[in-house]
Simulated scan of single mutants.
Amino acid sequence: MKGLYCRAGVSDAEPKFVIQETSVAEVLGSHQVRVKVKACGLSPLDLKLLSDVGIQRDLIPVGREVAGVVVQVGPKVSSFQPDDEVVGILPLDSPCSGLCDAIDIDEQYLVQKPEKLSSVCAAGALRDGLHAYTALHTHARMAAGHTLLVMDGASSFGLMCIQLACYHGVKVLTTSHSPQTRSFLEQLRPSVGVQNPLVARVIPVDSGTSDLLSVVLEETGGLGLDIIIDSGVRLQDGEESEGTKFLPHKHDIISVLAVGGHWVTSHQDLQLDPPDCRLLHLKSASVSFLNPEVWTASSAQQGRYLHILKDTVEKMSAGVLRPQPEEAVPRYEATVAMEAVQRHQRTKAVVQL
Protein backbone atom coordinates (compact mmCIF):
# COMPACT_ATOMS: atom_id res chain seq x y z
CA MET A 1 0.00 0.00 0.00
CA LYS A 2 1.02 3.63 -0.47
CA GLY A 3 1.29 6.64 1.85
CA LEU A 4 2.16 10.32 1.56
CA TYR A 5 5.51 11.48 2.95
CA CYS A 6 7.50 14.70 3.11
CA ARG A 7 11.13 14.84 2.01
CA ALA A 8 12.39 17.92 3.85
CA GLY A 9 14.33 20.35 1.66
CA VAL A 10 18.00 21.10 2.13
CA SER A 11 18.64 24.58 3.62
CA ASP A 12 15.88 26.89 2.34
CA ALA A 13 14.53 24.56 -0.34
CA GLU A 14 10.83 23.79 -0.17
CA PRO A 15 9.87 20.37 1.17
CA LYS A 16 8.80 17.81 -1.42
CA PHE A 17 5.79 15.54 -0.96
CA VAL A 18 6.03 12.06 -2.42
CA ILE A 19 3.97 8.88 -2.53
CA GLN A 20 5.91 5.95 -1.07
CA GLU A 21 5.23 2.25 -0.70
CA THR A 22 4.82 1.15 2.90
CA SER A 23 3.40 -1.70 4.94
CA VAL A 24 2.00 -2.44 8.39
CA ALA A 25 3.56 -4.83 10.89
CA GLU A 26 2.46 -8.45 10.83
CA VAL A 27 1.71 -8.47 14.57
CA LEU A 28 -0.19 -5.71 16.39
CA GLY A 29 1.12 -4.29 19.66
CA SER A 30 -0.75 -5.06 22.87
CA HIS A 31 -2.66 -1.76 22.93
CA GLN A 32 -2.68 -1.08 19.19
CA VAL A 33 -5.65 -0.90 16.85
CA ARG A 34 -5.55 -1.49 13.09
CA VAL A 35 -7.79 0.98 11.30
CA LYS A 36 -8.95 0.96 7.71
CA VAL A 37 -8.77 4.65 6.81
CA LYS A 38 -11.80 6.23 5.12
CA ALA A 39 -10.77 9.91 5.23
CA CYS A 40 -7.62 11.84 6.15
CA GLY A 41 -7.15 15.55 6.86
CA LEU A 42 -4.07 17.40 5.58
CA SER A 43 -2.70 20.33 7.60
CA PRO A 44 0.54 22.33 7.23
CA LEU A 45 3.62 20.45 8.40
CA ASP A 46 5.64 22.27 11.09
CA LEU A 47 9.17 21.06 10.30
CA LYS A 48 10.73 23.36 12.92
CA LEU A 49 8.55 21.87 15.67
CA LEU A 50 9.51 18.34 14.60
CA SER A 51 13.17 19.32 14.74
CA ASP A 52 12.72 20.96 18.16
CA VAL A 53 11.27 17.76 19.65
CA GLY A 54 14.01 15.61 18.10
CA ILE A 55 12.07 14.01 15.23
CA GLN A 56 14.44 13.95 12.27
CA ARG A 57 13.75 11.56 9.42
CA ASP A 58 14.47 11.42 5.72
CA LEU A 59 10.78 10.83 5.06
CA ILE A 60 8.21 12.37 7.41
CA PRO A 61 4.68 10.87 7.34
CA VAL A 62 1.98 13.31 6.24
CA GLY A 63 -1.72 13.30 7.10
CA ARG A 64 -2.45 12.81 10.80
CA GLU A 65 -6.19 13.47 11.25
CA VAL A 66 -7.87 10.19 10.36
CA ALA A 67 -11.32 8.63 10.39
CA GLY A 68 -11.95 4.99 9.64
CA VAL A 69 -13.12 1.55 10.75
CA VAL A 70 -11.39 -0.80 13.18
CA VAL A 71 -10.44 -4.08 11.50
CA GLN A 72 -8.26 -5.65 14.20
CA VAL A 73 -7.35 -5.00 17.83
CA GLY A 74 -4.39 -5.96 20.01
CA PRO A 75 -4.74 -8.46 22.89
CA LYS A 76 -5.00 -5.79 25.61
CA VAL A 77 -7.23 -3.27 23.81
CA SER A 78 -10.33 -2.56 25.90
CA SER A 79 -11.92 0.49 24.23
CA PHE A 80 -12.65 -0.79 20.71
CA GLN A 81 -13.82 -3.82 18.80
CA PRO A 82 -13.65 -4.70 15.10
CA ASP A 83 -16.15 -2.72 12.94
CA ASP A 84 -16.16 0.27 15.35
CA GLU A 85 -15.99 3.61 13.54
CA VAL A 86 -13.24 5.76 15.04
CA VAL A 87 -11.56 9.12 14.61
CA GLY A 88 -8.30 10.49 15.97
CA ILE A 89 -5.02 12.32 15.41
CA LEU A 90 -1.80 10.38 14.87
CA PRO A 91 1.02 11.35 17.28
CA LEU A 92 3.96 13.44 16.10
CA ASP A 93 6.31 10.46 16.04
CA SER A 94 3.94 8.11 14.23
CA PRO A 95 5.69 6.11 11.48
CA CYS A 96 2.41 5.82 9.54
CA SER A 97 0.97 8.20 6.99
CA GLY A 98 -2.76 8.77 7.40
CA LEU A 99 -3.21 8.22 3.66
CA CYS A 100 -2.33 4.52 3.91
CA ASP A 101 -5.16 2.06 3.40
CA ALA A 102 -4.60 0.73 6.93
CA ILE A 103 -2.68 2.12 9.91
CA ASP A 104 -1.68 0.84 13.34
CA ILE A 105 -2.30 3.28 16.18
CA ASP A 106 -2.46 3.06 19.98
CA GLU A 107 -6.02 3.06 21.31
CA GLN A 108 -5.23 6.11 23.49
CA TYR A 109 -5.29 8.35 20.42
CA LEU A 110 -8.75 7.33 19.17
CA VAL A 111 -12.40 7.95 20.10
CA GLN A 112 -15.65 6.54 18.76
CA LYS A 113 -17.11 8.40 15.77
CA PRO A 114 -20.85 9.13 16.02
CA GLU A 115 -22.88 7.40 13.33
CA LYS A 116 -24.43 10.64 12.03
CA LEU A 117 -21.05 12.30 11.48
CA SER A 118 -19.40 11.69 8.12
CA SER A 119 -15.78 10.54 7.99
CA VAL A 120 -14.83 13.46 5.72
CA CYS A 121 -16.30 16.03 8.12
CA ALA A 122 -14.68 14.39 11.15
CA ALA A 123 -11.21 14.20 9.59
CA GLY A 124 -11.43 17.72 8.20
CA ALA A 125 -12.63 19.50 11.34
CA LEU A 126 -11.17 17.50 14.24
CA ARG A 127 -7.97 19.57 14.49
CA ASP A 128 -9.85 22.90 14.48
CA GLY A 129 -12.20 21.61 17.17
CA LEU A 130 -9.27 20.50 19.31
CA HIS A 131 -7.60 23.92 18.88
CA ALA A 132 -10.79 25.76 19.86
CA TYR A 133 -11.28 23.63 22.99
CA THR A 134 -7.64 24.10 23.99
CA ALA A 135 -7.79 27.87 23.55
CA LEU A 136 -11.14 28.48 25.24
CA HIS A 137 -11.31 25.84 27.96
CA THR A 138 -7.72 24.89 28.78
CA HIS A 139 -6.07 28.30 28.45
CA ALA A 140 -8.79 30.95 28.85
CA ARG A 141 -11.06 29.12 31.35
CA MET A 142 -14.12 30.33 29.44
CA ALA A 143 -17.34 30.81 31.43
CA ALA A 144 -20.85 32.11 30.75
CA GLY A 145 -20.97 35.90 30.75
CA HIS A 146 -17.44 36.39 29.45
CA THR A 147 -16.76 38.60 26.43
CA LEU A 148 -14.56 37.12 23.69
CA LEU A 149 -12.81 38.55 20.64
CA VAL A 150 -11.90 36.06 17.91
CA MET A 151 -9.56 37.41 15.25
CA ASP A 152 -10.50 36.35 11.70
CA GLY A 153 -13.72 34.61 12.70
CA ALA A 154 -14.39 33.39 9.15
CA SER A 155 -11.38 31.03 9.25
CA SER A 156 -12.06 27.37 10.01
CA PHE A 157 -10.48 27.73 13.47
CA GLY A 158 -12.21 31.05 14.17
CA LEU A 159 -15.59 29.61 13.24
CA MET A 160 -15.14 26.73 15.68
CA CYS A 161 -14.21 29.19 18.45
CA ILE A 162 -17.28 31.34 17.78
CA GLN A 163 -19.72 28.40 17.85
CA LEU A 164 -18.17 26.78 20.93
CA ALA A 165 -18.14 30.07 22.85
CA CYS A 166 -21.75 30.91 21.99
CA TYR A 167 -22.85 27.44 23.10
CA HIS A 168 -21.40 28.23 26.56
CA GLY A 169 -23.09 31.64 26.87
CA VAL A 170 -20.14 33.85 25.90
CA LYS A 171 -20.63 37.17 24.09
CA VAL A 172 -18.54 37.04 20.90
CA LEU A 173 -16.95 39.80 18.83
CA THR A 174 -14.86 39.06 15.76
CA THR A 175 -12.97 40.70 12.90
CA SER A 176 -13.49 40.33 9.15
CA HIS A 177 -11.02 40.77 6.29
CA SER A 178 -13.50 41.50 3.50
CA PRO A 179 -17.14 42.58 2.95
CA GLN A 180 -17.97 38.97 2.00
CA THR A 181 -16.63 37.50 5.25
CA ARG A 182 -18.33 40.28 7.22
CA SER A 183 -21.69 39.39 5.67
CA PHE A 184 -21.06 35.69 6.33
CA LEU A 185 -20.27 36.30 10.01
CA GLU A 186 -23.23 38.60 10.57
CA GLN A 187 -25.59 35.95 9.20
CA LEU A 188 -24.32 33.13 11.43
CA ARG A 189 -27.12 31.52 13.44
CA PRO A 190 -27.19 28.44 15.70
CA SER A 191 -28.61 25.24 14.22
CA VAL A 192 -30.77 24.66 17.31
CA GLY A 193 -32.44 26.91 19.87
CA VAL A 194 -33.12 30.64 19.63
CA GLN A 195 -32.04 31.98 16.26
CA ASN A 196 -30.14 35.02 17.52
CA PRO A 197 -26.91 35.99 15.73
CA LEU A 198 -23.85 34.13 17.01
CA VAL A 199 -21.66 37.23 16.70
CA ALA A 200 -22.58 40.38 18.64
CA ARG A 201 -20.36 42.63 16.52
CA VAL A 202 -18.18 42.17 13.43
CA ILE A 203 -15.26 44.61 13.23
CA PRO A 204 -13.99 45.15 9.65
CA VAL A 205 -10.20 45.39 9.26
CA ASP A 206 -9.98 45.21 5.45
CA SER A 207 -9.47 48.96 5.00
CA GLY A 208 -6.07 48.88 6.72
CA THR A 209 -7.36 50.85 9.71
CA SER A 210 -9.46 49.43 12.51
CA ASP A 211 -11.71 50.91 15.17
CA LEU A 212 -10.87 47.97 17.41
CA LEU A 213 -10.36 49.94 20.62
CA SER A 214 -13.43 52.16 20.29
CA VAL A 215 -15.72 49.27 19.26
CA VAL A 216 -14.54 47.01 22.09
CA LEU A 217 -14.96 49.75 24.69
CA GLU A 218 -18.45 50.47 23.34
CA GLU A 219 -19.49 46.81 23.42
CA THR A 220 -18.05 46.14 26.88
CA GLY A 221 -19.07 49.37 28.63
CA GLY A 222 -15.44 50.45 28.83
CA LEU A 223 -14.34 47.31 30.72
CA GLY A 224 -12.46 45.49 27.93
CA LEU A 225 -12.43 41.87 26.83
CA ASP A 226 -12.15 38.81 29.05
CA ILE A 227 -10.63 36.63 26.30
CA ILE A 228 -8.82 37.38 23.03
CA ILE A 229 -7.83 34.66 20.57
CA ASP A 230 -5.58 35.87 17.76
CA SER A 231 -4.46 34.34 14.49
CA GLY A 232 -1.08 36.08 14.68
CA VAL A 233 -0.04 39.65 15.54
CA ARG A 234 2.19 42.42 14.23
CA LEU A 235 5.21 43.04 16.42
CA GLN A 236 6.24 46.38 14.91
CA ASP A 237 4.52 49.45 13.50
CA GLY A 238 4.75 49.65 9.73
CA GLU A 239 4.93 45.86 9.33
CA GLU A 240 2.76 45.61 6.22
CA SER A 241 3.68 42.40 4.43
CA GLU A 242 1.00 40.39 2.63
CA GLY A 243 0.70 37.96 5.53
CA THR A 244 0.50 40.58 8.30
CA LYS A 245 -1.46 43.53 6.89
CA PHE A 246 -4.75 42.39 8.50
CA LEU A 247 -3.18 41.38 11.82
CA PRO A 248 -3.60 43.56 14.92
CA HIS A 249 -0.60 45.13 16.61
CA LYS A 250 0.38 43.47 19.89
CA HIS A 251 -0.17 46.73 21.81
CA ASP A 252 -3.75 46.97 20.46
CA ILE A 253 -4.44 43.48 21.81
CA ILE A 254 -3.16 44.33 25.28
CA SER A 255 -5.02 47.67 25.28
CA VAL A 256 -8.44 46.04 24.83
CA LEU A 257 -7.93 43.34 27.48
CA ALA A 258 -10.00 43.60 30.64
CA VAL A 259 -8.61 43.31 34.15
CA GLY A 260 -7.76 39.65 34.65
CA GLY A 261 -8.17 39.00 30.91
CA HIS A 262 -6.61 36.15 28.93
CA TRP A 263 -4.81 36.57 25.61
CA VAL A 264 -4.35 33.28 23.74
CA THR A 265 -1.85 33.73 20.91
CA SER A 266 -0.78 31.57 17.97
CA HIS A 267 2.31 33.72 17.38
CA GLN A 268 5.29 31.47 18.11
CA ASP A 269 7.90 34.27 18.22
CA LEU A 270 5.97 36.82 20.25
CA GLN A 271 8.18 39.49 21.83
CA LEU A 272 6.82 41.82 24.50
CA ASP A 273 8.55 45.10 25.31
CA PRO A 274 8.76 46.42 28.91
CA PRO A 275 5.79 48.83 28.37
CA ASP A 276 3.68 45.89 27.12
CA CYS A 277 4.60 43.81 30.16
CA ARG A 278 3.89 46.76 32.44
CA LEU A 279 0.39 47.14 30.98
CA LEU A 280 -0.27 43.41 31.37
CA HIS A 281 0.93 43.65 34.96
CA LEU A 282 -1.35 46.58 35.70
CA LYS A 283 -4.32 44.63 34.36
CA SER A 284 -3.20 41.39 36.03
CA ALA A 285 -3.76 39.85 32.59
CA SER A 286 -2.11 36.73 31.15
CA VAL A 287 -0.71 35.53 27.84
CA SER A 288 -0.97 31.87 26.80
CA PHE A 289 0.68 30.26 23.78
CA LEU A 290 -1.54 27.95 21.76
CA ASN A 291 0.52 24.94 20.72
CA PRO A 292 -1.94 22.54 19.10
CA GLU A 293 0.51 19.62 19.19
CA VAL A 294 0.99 19.61 22.94
CA TRP A 295 -1.65 16.91 23.53
CA THR A 296 -0.01 14.27 21.34
CA ALA A 297 3.54 15.36 22.26
CA SER A 298 2.91 14.57 25.94
CA SER A 299 0.85 11.90 27.69
CA ALA A 300 0.51 13.89 30.92
CA GLN A 301 -3.19 14.68 30.41
CA GLN A 302 -4.30 11.87 28.11
CA GLY A 303 -7.72 11.52 29.75
CA ARG A 304 -8.53 15.19 29.23
CA TYR A 305 -7.34 14.98 25.61
CA LEU A 306 -9.65 12.05 24.87
CA HIS A 307 -12.54 13.88 26.56
CA ILE A 308 -11.97 16.88 24.28
CA LEU A 309 -11.88 14.70 21.14
CA LYS A 310 -15.04 12.87 22.18
CA ASP A 311 -16.92 16.07 23.02
CA THR A 312 -15.80 17.68 19.75
CA VAL A 313 -17.15 14.90 17.52
CA GLU A 314 -20.36 14.63 19.56
CA LYS A 315 -21.02 18.37 19.19
CA MET A 316 -20.30 18.15 15.45
CA SER A 317 -22.74 15.25 15.18
CA ALA A 318 -25.41 17.20 17.10
CA GLY A 319 -24.96 20.31 14.94
CA VAL A 320 -23.64 22.51 17.75
CA LEU A 321 -20.33 22.79 15.90
CA ARG A 322 -20.79 23.20 12.15
CA PRO A 323 -17.41 23.35 10.41
CA GLN A 324 -16.99 24.94 7.02
CA PRO A 325 -17.71 22.22 4.44
CA GLU A 326 -14.52 20.90 2.86
CA GLU A 327 -14.74 19.15 -0.51
CA ALA A 328 -12.84 15.88 -0.38
CA VAL A 329 -10.16 15.17 -2.98
CA PRO A 330 -9.19 11.69 -4.25
CA ARG A 331 -5.89 10.16 -3.16
CA TYR A 332 -4.19 10.73 -6.52
CA GLU A 333 -4.55 14.49 -5.94
CA ALA A 334 -3.14 14.33 -2.39
CA THR A 335 0.37 15.48 -3.35
CA VAL A 336 -0.87 18.60 -5.13
CA ALA A 337 -3.35 19.36 -2.34
CA MET A 338 -0.66 19.02 0.34
CA GLU A 339 1.71 21.32 -1.55
CA ALA A 340 -1.03 23.98 -1.64
CA VAL A 341 -1.68 23.51 2.09
CA GLN A 342 2.02 23.78 2.94
CA ARG A 343 2.31 27.03 0.93
CA HIS A 344 -0.81 28.34 2.74
CA GLN A 345 -2.66 28.66 -0.58
CA ARG A 346 -5.43 26.74 1.15
CA THR A 347 -5.95 26.24 4.88
CA LYS A 348 -6.45 22.47 4.81
CA ALA A 349 -7.58 19.59 2.62
CA VAL A 350 -9.39 16.29 3.15
CA VAL A 351 -8.57 13.15 1.20
CA GLN A 352 -11.25 10.48 0.85
CA LEU A 353 -9.99 6.92 0.51
Rank of each mutant, 00 (worst) to 15 (best):
V10R: 11
I227S: 08
C166A: 15
V86Y: 00
G193L: 02
V336P: 00
I308V: 12
S118M: 10
T265D: 08
A349M: 07
L92I: 13
T134P: 01
S78N: 07
I60M: 05
L90R: 10
V18P: 01
D104G: 05
D128E: 10
G153H: 09
D276I: 04
T312Y: 01
Q324F: 09
Q301H: 15
S156I: 12
H344Q: 14
W295E: 13
P82L: 00
L217C: 08
K113N: 09
V77I: 09
T209F: 08
G98A: 10
V87C: 01
K310Y: 08
P330I: 13
R189E: 12
L99V: 01
F246L: 06
Q32R: 03
L47S: 11
L290V: 04
T175P: 02
K76P: 01
V350S: 05
S288I: 00
I55H: 05
E115V: 14
K348S: 14
F157S: 13
N291G: 12
I105K: 02
K2F: 15
K315C: 11
E219Q: 15
L309D: 06
Q345M: 14
D311F: 03
A143H: 13
E339S: 15
A297C: 12
P190M: 05
T134L: 07
P330F: 10
G124I: 01
V87M: 03
F157V: 14
C100G: 03
V264A: 03
H281Y: 13
E65N: 12
I162F: 05
V66Q: 01
L136V: 03
T175A: 04
A340M: 14
Q268I: 04
H31V: 03
S299W: 11
K36C: 01
M316K: 07
S288T: 09
L272C: 08
L4K: 10
I228D: 13
S214E: 15
S30Q: 06
E186G: 15
T296G: 04
R57I: 04
D128V: 02
V111S: 11
Q72H: 00
S97P: 04
I228Q: 08
L45T: 12
E327V: 11
L225N: 07
V341P: 11
V259P: 00
L280A: 03
V62P: 02
P75K: 14
K116N: 11
H251R: 13
D206H: 14
S266V: 06
S51N: 12
D273N: 09
C40L: 02
A144C: 09
V71K: 04
Q301D: 15
G41S: 09
L148R: 05
L47Q: 11
V62K: 05
C277G: 07
S119M: 09
L164Q: 08
T22P: 00
R189D: 15
H281R: 12
Q20T: 07
V70Q: 02
C100L: 04
L198T: 05
V27Y: 03
G145I: 03
L306S: 00
K36A: 00
S23G: 01
H177W: 02
Q108M: 13
V172A: 00
E21S: 11
M338V: 05
S156C: 13
